[in-house]
Amino acid sequence: MAHQISIRIDGKLVKVSAGSSILDAALAAGKDIPALCHMKGLSAVGACRLCVVELAGVGRLLPACTTPAADGMSVTTVSQKLTKYRRMILEMLFAERNHVCSVCVSNNHCELQALAARLGVTNVRFAYSYPKLSADTSHPRFVLDHNRCILCTRCVRVCAELEGAHVWDVMSRGTGSRLVCDMNQPWGASKGCTSCGKCVQACPTGALAEKGWCVEEMAKQPARVSRLAVIRGGGQ
């Protein structure tokens, strides 16, 4: 059995095995830290920054999913400061693409939308960028709509680490970053895609969806994909 360490989470003492992330430790302590890119069973990448926490003695905020818990750490997961930054992060995600919830296939089933409600984001203070983005409808069963993608890379990881196909990647930089299929080809032309649908189920928004569903009809099963990944012994 892995060696145990103790850390304090919001004042409560928690014992976890060495090598756990702060997010795992918080989960073990019954804390539900907001998170978008994290998926249990897949590697942690720290892409969304929603899981930021305060660490005693450290001046800056740290993502809980990629920061390893260390013996004697004292972590704060709920504070006004954290709420302020988590709200800003959500607002930036909304401003960066065209998230038109009312006509989205995943309206009312979306993790981004649900977090806005949970954190009380009533409006976006940053200027919307209204980028002109496309949707890839070339796959016979699935659609990729860049308008809704938050670049969490859950699809990239689930396809590479669980399905073993590694169809997805992210190209370019900054606000120009785009999810790409293979070497930037239409999804329908991919020889590697097994059409397993894991990426669709893992995607937290309406960016990846099955064809044939209308507004509000695409509910996903990320927990099922995650359980499968854990059984296969994937990274935390």
Binding site: F94, N98, V100, C101, S102, V103, T122, N123, V124, Y128, Y130, P131, K132, L133
Partner: peptide, 11 residues
């Protein structure tokens, strides 16, 4: 609040 459907013409 956001522009919503009305802003879908913006591109």
């Amino acid at each position: 609040v956001t522009g919503n459907v009305s802003s879908m013409r913006n591109g």
